[in-house]
Design a protein around this nucleic acid. Structure first.
Lengths: 336, 336
DNA sequence: GAGATTTACGAAAACGATTACGAATTAGAA
DNA sequence: TTCTAATTCGTAATCGTTTTCGTAAATCTC
């Protein structure tokens, strides 16, 4: 490995000068700087990230915590898209991404321990159990961080705007003349609560009654449980004319059940999803859904975090909510 | 941040002794060692990964290159599953995972440059354009590496056994009495070639003629192009009785087309996928497919890489092929 | 042309750990 | 008791950078 010393010897200057030239410091001569850069590239020099981190106390790497109990974390398109967007946004600013875990080597380590061990400049937390003590410890650790889809007091949060999203989706369905709208929601989380509240509020606004029978609990990303809920809804004497699913993938369970009953979407019953994953765009009839802007969420999270890292004094935490947009498919029929 | 020095002062011993005690070296007294470890944990000590890496020349971190032209890399369930399995396997042995890119900071950097800059102990390459000069440079860089689903000379490779996989799937379909089997394949890659060859070989073995009209080219993970191919197949006067799709997700395109024709799976036509993603398990009828063992692929890749890293002298590269298994759904009908 | 200022460069300390080597102490052997 | 060997611990060098501060030369000011 070629080091600053090698360059300095080859250029007959000190390592200090080489360092400064390569970092674009001002106090080094035009001509000298050019010569040094030339030699550096000829020799194939790369700075040693460890040495640099040791000296500057900045690792230029960011830890991401992406885990949940079910282990579906990365498999979920929403999250893999966020991760991808985080990746490009951070890399373009010179930061690398490393996963945080709680098992580094034989000796278990807390998330915070891991983050300190690797000297992460900042941390992004997503898709976790936000009540987990280890997560709370990390949140309180003082390390600059951004939380996704959850709000901690005086910490930066980037959240998908579920309130306006569900409102827009519900408005659309109502505008199509539906008055008997069923709502299948996921487990009880902040996200779920916001969506449900928004659904109810929008219905009330249009004086559409909320039937208890039309509100069903299921599990996110689990077609089986949504299928079950669908079956119950279809067994009702007064069936809904439209069903909103917790997410696009869950709709598959509903779809199976609907077909089993011999119904056709949207002729006999209308449906809507949430997320706007790839699948929703290729199903026929095309699914009406609300697409979350995962790309933007990742990008903003990265930007905010780096802002925080680079201006620790002046940075003030905020909660950014990212709007998505309605995708009008063909799964919601206009009622006469 | 608490350092070895803090501990050494608090314990009235030298930093050398502290270091040795914490690393379990033999030449430190039983009682001293205990005292040091106690103080270390009381003070909340964490080793400084940068300092350690600088001194030992081992970063305990592994770079993964996960990129393709289409940018669907991470979105593909097969890859996100591999990534996840890599993650747990490496972390349990004390290695962290960082993504490799070619843009670190403002100055573009080659993959190799990035890997050297971060002092990755090893690298895992997957889902890339294997003809890309930058990738080839990385492969020849001398850094310990494992390649996924592609074989480079005298480099360790872990590949999904597409030959036996497609053979098993085809055998199954034939065993159900099918003789008119259409095969839609993806772009021309090694993987495609192997699957196609295996399909043809298995058919020949059973003296089933290979009609040129039954072999269609499409694009992986693209329901639209598979839908098109399906349409052509259904327009044939002598229609196939079964269609094999490039992957499970692509089948959605075929499914739409089949339904549009008023056909029902598997009554009127049989279908099979490849991959065994979540979706294939929740569709009704359940899709018959061949599930690749992504978890095992990731785990073995991690194990081999770490073996290579830790025994650079004795390690010999090899190609490991990982078998998957047939998932018998209900999408292939038994012909009388 | 003397003093003040700017410019270009180098010497050296420091970041936090690891490790070869030597020294001191203790235990064991004869 | 004396010599050897084992055990335990410390000294100091080192990894590759960055950065402060000092100094010498060059430039400017009047």
């Amino acid at each position: 490995m070629v080091t600053l010393k090698d360059i300095s010897e080859s250029c007959k200057v000190s390592v200090a000068t080489v360092s400064k030239a390569l970092n674009g410091q001002s106090d080094v001569g035009e001509e000298t700087s050019r010569r040094i850069r030339k030699v550096a590239s000829d020799l194939g020099y790369f700075p040693n990230a460890s040495a640099r981190a040791l000296k500057t106390n900045r690792s230029h790497s960011i830890g991401v915590l992406f885990e949940d109990k079910t282990g579906t974390g990365l498999k979920h398109e929403y999250f893999s898209e966020i991760l991808d967007s985080l990746k490009v946004a951070t890399e373009s600013r010179g930061y690398d991404i490393t996963f945080i875990s709680n098992s580094i080597g034989r000796n278990q380590m807390s998330y915070t321990g891991h983050a300190r061990y690797r000297r992460f400049d900042g941390v992004i937390i997503a898709s976790v159990d936000f009540k987990n003590p280890q997560v709370l410890e990390l949140v309180d650790s003082g390390i600059p961080l951004v939380v996704l889809d959850y709000v901690f007091d005086s910490k930066t949060a980037v959240i998908s705007d579920n309130v306006s999203g569900m409102e827009e989706l519900t408005e659309y369905i109502i505008s199509k003349g539906h008055k008997k709208i069923a709502f299948i929601h996921g487990e009880d989380t902040t996200v779920t609560q916001k969506r449900l509240a928004s659904f109810i509020k929008t219905c009330s606004k249009h004086e559409i009654p909320i039937l208890q029978d039309y509100i069903k609990q299921a599990v996110y990303h689990d077609p089986k449980s949504s299928g079950l809920a669908t079956r119950e809804l279809l067994a009702l004497t007064d069936k809904p004319t439209c069903i909103i699913y917790p997410d696009d993938f869950s709709y598959i369970g509903g779809m199976n059940e609907i077909e089993k009953h011999g119904f056709i979407v949207p002729k006999d019953i209308s449906v809507a999803g949430y997320d706007g994953i790839l699948l929703s765009k290729v199903l026929r009839p095309k699914l009406t859904t609300f697409e979350q802007n995962a790309e933007e969420i990742g990008r903003i999270a990265a930007t905010k975090l780096i802002e925080n890292i680079e201006n620790p004094k002046t940075y003030i935490p905020e909660t950014v909510s990212v709007k998505g947009h309605l995708i009008e498919g063909e799964s919601v029929k206009a009622l006469s």
